[in-house]
């Protein structure tokens, strides 16, 4: 049985001198959510196009649901759903007609198609508006409808390019819950790109960080935090003098120090022990009210990776 829904090996695509995707190698477990993180123009959309067999790679290879995108693009598209960069909705048609069209494209029987459209539209609270032309709808409504369309034919693997862009916070949470349900109950695999790192942290079993076509890091959010993220200690108190801050900055275990009002945040290198900190601050006559130790968020990991790449 296939363990990985997606595997790439040195996958590359160039456009003239631009390396849009540069030697990326990763895998996505079947029945999991994989988040592809990166700034605009980093190669996320090109990667989706390569995996769907819409573009041919310049070099390297990939396997999607056991198929080769170059040779078997048709079979891949048969078994996948996609919400790409644009919603791809026919704005002159009604919401019902949009879903009905793609239901017909995937040759769903009439009764199943009708029931599925009702199920999906009721779930996103748009069934009462099914006969409205989509053109006048808000971005969030269109995004929800487009996501429903991607799931219409119950695909094994779904590609979602910025799926929650344009959704309000409530709709975003509902969408995340839907995705988690889909994966847990139906074993669907989800490959999503997002700028929303908090969302990726809550949703994704594994993430990959891409920049300028290069995959900088791949792993679970915890692994990435462990590899890249630095522990940090937040001290609430008073008496954070310049001298104290300068001395702290020079400490070998300290990566960075910031003060905002009565909050001192000390970022430690890797998993450095923070035991030295409180005694040191006490000797500096700092009044300590509270000390909190925590791990860096995925956002901080992402920023660290971006900064490291800038330095390199």
């Amino acid at each position: 049985m296939l363990h990985n829904a997606i595997e790439t090996n040195g996958l590359s695509r160039t456009f003239g001198s631009l390396k849009a995707v540069n030697q990326i190698t990763f895998s996505v477990d079947k029945g999991s959510i994989f988040g592809f993180l990166g700034p605009n123009g980093s190669g996320k959309t090109t990667t989706i196009r390569l995996l769907l067999g819409l573009l041919e790679p310049t070099s390297g290879s990939a396997s999607v649901l056991g198929y080769d995108p170059i040779r078997d693009g048709q079979q891949i598209r048969e078994n996948c759903g996609a919400l790409l960069e644009h919603t791809g909705l026919y704005e002159r048609l009604t919401a019902y007609d949009n879903l009905d069209f793609y239901g017909r494209v995937w040759r769903m029987p009439a009764a199943d198609r009708k029931a599925r459209i009702k199920e999906l539209l009721e779930h996103i609270h748009l069934y009462d508006r099914r006969d409205e032309i989509v053109k006048g709808w808000s971005r969030g409504m269109k995004q929800k409808l487009a996501a429903a369309r991607a799931m219409m034919h119950r695909p094994q693997l779904i590609f979602l390019d910025e799926p929650t862009a344009g959704l309000d916070p409530v709709a975003s949470v509902a969408f995340r819950d839907d995705l988690l349900n889909l994966v847990e109950k139906n074993g669907v695999t989800v490959f999503l790109t997002t700028h929303n790192l908090a969302e990726a942290e809550k949703l994704c079993h594994r993430v990959g960080v891409i920049r300028e076509g290069q995959l900088l890091s791949v792993g679970s959010p915890d692994e990435l935090r462990h590899k890249q993220g630095n522990s940090q200690v937040e001290v609430i108190g008073s008496g954070f003098t310049e001298t104290t801050l300068q001395q702290l900055q020079l400490h070998p275990q300290v990566r960075g120090v910031t003060v905002k009002g009565n909050h001192l945040t000390v970022q430690l290198n890797g998993d450095s022990d923070s035991a030295f900190l409180v005694p040191f601050l006490v000797t500096q006559d700092v009044q300590i009210d509270e000390v909190r130790k925590g791990k860096a968020s995925l956002e901080e990991v992402f920023m660290t990776l971006m900064e490291e790449e800038n330095v390199n």
Binding site: L52, L54, Q74, R77, E78, C80, A82, L84, E85, H86, T87, G88, L89, Y90, E91, Y102, V105, W106, F159
Partner: peptide, 14 residues
């Protein structure tokens, strides 16, 4: 022009 082509091309249609 209406950004629907790529979604159509990403479908199972030959």
């Amino acid at each position: 022009e209406r950004n629907t082509l790529e979604t159509l091309l990403a479908s199972r249609l030959t």
